[in-house]
Computed example of a mutant assay.
Amino acid sequence: MHRFVLEAIPTPEESREVARKAIIILKDFVADENLLHDMDLVLTEGCSNVARHAYDKIENCNKLELTIKVHPGEHIIFEIADWGKGLCSKSIDFSMPSPEAVGGRGMFIMSELMDSFELIKENGKNIIKLTRKLKEDQWRKK
């Protein structure tokens, strides 16, 4: 197993940069460009949600943390974490909003593109845990 941790102050620019750096790391393991695109979309959405919703105001003490766990030949786990307000899992709507809606597509997109989606709260840390299984031909041959 390979483990990587990326951290940033959760601004829109920094959250996008965290997702971009994650994809650079994943290119060493994932051969499927379409899957990398899906992962980029999921990570960009998850990290930008932290930037938009986790904290009441942007401060240097606020933190966005992305942990990537690569289990070669099996799956990849992403854990997007913050120490802000957190999400109430009972209030999250995972369905696609109407075409007229301005937002609200992020959770739907993340839940559709990943194999599992969990919301975890532990010791003040809010975690969105996303798991994606990969087929044998989606892994980069070493």
Rank of each mutant, 00 (worst) to 15 (best):
S91H: 01
H53M: 08
F117P: 08
K129F: 00
S15Q: 03
W83R: 14
F94N: 04
E136K: 13
E112I: 00
L41A: 09
E118Y: 03
S15H: 02
R16V: 03
I109A: 06
L113R: 08
A101K: 12
G106T: 03
R20K: 12
T131G: 08
T67K: 15
A8Q: 07
K57A: 12
M1P: 15
E59V: 14
P72S: 13
I127T: 15
N34K: 11
L36T: 12
I9Y: 02
S48E: 15
S15F: 02
V70L: 13
E7K: 13
C88Y: 02
K85D: 06
K133S: 12
M114A: 12
G46C: 11
E122K: 13
M110P: 08
S98D: 09
C47G: 11
Q138T: 04
E17Y: 05
L130G: 08
L26W: 06
L64Q: 14
F94W: 05
F4K: 11
T44S: 14
K21E: 10
K141R: 13
M1A: 12
S111C: 06
I127G: 06
K121V: 11
C88M: 01
E136W: 01
A101G: 01
A31N: 14
E33S: 14
C61S: 15
K90L: 04
P72H: 12
L130V: 09
V42K: 06
K69L: 13
L130E: 09
E45N: 12
N34E: 15
E7S: 08
K27W: 01
D82T: 03
G103P: 00
G104Y: 02
P10E: 00
D28E: 08
Q138G: 08
E100G: 01
E122H: 11
L43G: 12
V70E: 13
S111H: 07
S98H: 04
R3N: 12
F94P: 08
L6M: 05
S89M: 01
C88E: 10
E45T: 10
D137C: 05
A8S: 12
M96R: 06
L36Q: 11
H53Q: 10
G104V: 00
I76H: 13
D32N: 15
P12M: 00
E13S: 12
D28R: 15
H71D: 14
W83S: 11
L26C: 06
L130W: 05
H75R: 14
V5K: 10
H71F: 14
N123S: 09
H53T: 09
E13T: 09
H53L: 13
I80G: 08
F117Q: 05
G84E: 04
L6I: 13
V70K: 14
G73R: 10
S89N: 02
E59T: 15
G124V: 04
G103Q: 01
I128P: 07
K21I: 02
L35Q: 07
D40P: 02
R3T: 15
K142Y: 04
G103S: 09
G73Q: 10
V5L: 05
L119K: 06
F108I: 00
S111Y: 03
R105L: 03
G86W: 01
D40V: 02
C61E: 15
A81Q: 09
M39W: 11
L119R: 04
